[in-house]
Amino acid sequence: MRVLFDDHIFSIQRHGGVSRCFAEVVAELRARPGVQVVLPFRQVINSHLMDQPGLDVRGFLGAGHFPGKRSLLRAHNRRLVRRALGHGAFDVFHQTFYDAGLIDLLHGRPMVVTVHDMAPELMPEIFPKPEEIHPGKRALCAAAAAIVAVSAHTKADLVRLYGIDPARVEVVHHGLSRDAVWAPGRRAGIALPDRYLLIVGRRDGYKNFAGVARRLAALLARRADLHLVCVGGGHLQDEERQPFLEAGCATRLHQRTLPAGDLAYAYAHAAAFVFPSLYEGFGLPILESFANGCPAVLSDRSCFPEIAGDAAVYFDPATPESLTQVLERVLDDGALRHRLIADGRRRVRDFTWTAAADRLLALYRRLPARH
C-alpha cells in the first residue's frame, strides 16, 4: 500500500493542529509493515514533520521568515507533487489541505480528503471573505473517493451543508500526541502563577474569548489568588485586557507562547482548562487537558460533548454567567475535581493515533483499485 501525501499544510503551517495531525498519521503509517508513505518533497517549514527521526525532510531557506517565503516554497513543492501524481507510483492520494487544482491529475486513482471543520460555511458572518477560506473544499469533496471527518458532528455538518452521501464520509477521531503529556518531575522552562485558569489557542471570533472575558474578570476580582493564563493566540489586545482593567485584576491576566512540553506543564498545574469556543471540528486541547489531569470546563456546543463525554463539565456560552457558576463548582468542590481528573484520564485512552491510522488504512484498502 503506497499512500501519497502532498506538501500543502506542511508548506504553509509552522505549527498547528492540522499539520500536527497529518504528521502523526505519517509517523504511524511509516511504522506499518507493507505501507509506504510517499512524500514527493524534501523541504518544509513545518516543525511537526521535521521532528520525525529518519524522515528526509528539512527546513526551507533557514529558520527565519521573510515575505513570500511560504508562497515560494508552496510553488516549488507543488510542482514536485504534480510530477508525482503524473507518474502514478502510489495507490491512494491523501490531500493535506484543499487544492482542487490537483483533481485532474488523478487519472482514476482514488483520492481521500480530510475535513477538519465547517466553520466558514456555518459562520460566514465572522469571516471577512468566507468564500476564500477553503475555496477548493466543495470541489474536492465531490471528487474524492472518500472523505474523512474528524468527528461525527463535523460529518453531520458536512452532509447537511454539502448534500453528501453519508456513506462516503468516514469519521476518524484524532489522537493524543506523545509530547502533549507532562512527565511529573520534568522541570518547565517557564514560571507560572501558583493558581490559574488556562485558555489555549486563538481567542478571536468564534473562539469566543470576548464572550466570556467579563465573567472571567469578575471571577478573578472576587478571588485574589486566581490568575488567567492564555497560551498561544498572539499578544493580548487592548480590547481583550479592558474587562480585566475595569475589574482591577489586569495584572493577573497573562499571555504565553509555549513549546509542547511547557504547554503540557501548564495544563498539569492549572486549576481548570476553559474552552469557550462556539464551534470546533474536534478540539485537540480537550485531550491534552485530560491527559495532564486538568479539569475541563467546556462550551456545550458543536462536537465537545462527543469528544469529552461525561469527563468534562459544560456551560452555555449564550448565558456567560453559567460559566462563572460552573467554574465556582470546579474550584471549590474537591470531589468534583477528583472525579473530572479520573474520568478525563480514562476518556483520553479512547483517542490514539494508532487507532486513527488503523481506521485510515482500513479505509484506504476499501477504496476501488486504480483504473
Rank of each mutant, 00 (worst) to 15 (best):
D7F: 08
L72P: 04
C230F: 10
T257E: 14
A266Y: 00
G175I: 01
A224N: 09
E240I: 02
E121P: 05
S177C: 12
P67R: 10
H174T: 01
Y314R: 05
R83H: 10
G283M: 06
A167M: 09
Q43T: 13
T352Q: 09
L278V: 03
Q255T: 11
G88K: 05
D316T: 11
D343N: 10
L158W: 06
P124F: 02
V81P: 06
L85T: 06
L219W: 01
Y265I: 00
L192I: 06
V92S: 06
G185K: 02
R203L: 07
I164N: 05
S151V: 11
G17T: 14
A308K: 07
L4Y: 00
R168H: 05
P368S: 02
A266T: 08
G86T: 00
Y162F: 15
R349V: 06
H76W: 12
H116G: 08
R138E: 12
S151Q: 14
E132I: 07
A145M: 07
H235P: 15
L85K: 10
L80Q: 09
P128R: 14
F127V: 01
V112T: 12
C141A: 10
I103T: 07
F41C: 04
F282R: 00
H87K: 14
L245D: 10
D332M: 14
E125A: 13
E28Q: 15
A308S: 04
K69S: 07
A247N: 07
F290V: 06
I341Q: 13
V25I: 15
G283A: 08
E28A: 15
L253F: 00
G34S: 12
R78S: 02
G211F: 06
D333V: 07
S11L: 07
G175C: 05
L323S: 13
L122V: 00
R339C: 02
R32I: 07
F290H: 11
L367V: 09
R30D: 05
P128G: 06
D104R: 13
D350V: 03
V274Y: 03
V313G: 01
T154C: 10
A312Q: 03
P128A: 06
L245Q: 15
Q52E: 10
R78P: 00
A312S: 07
G334V: 12
A75G: 15
C21F: 11
G64F: 02
A250T: 11
L228H: 12
A291T: 12
S71C: 15
V37E: 04
S19K: 02
R346N: 03
V3C: 08
R241W: 03
G64C: 08
G68R: 09
R215P: 11
F351N: 03
P135I: 11
R83D: 01
A221C: 06
R82M: 03
A84P: 12
L61A: 14
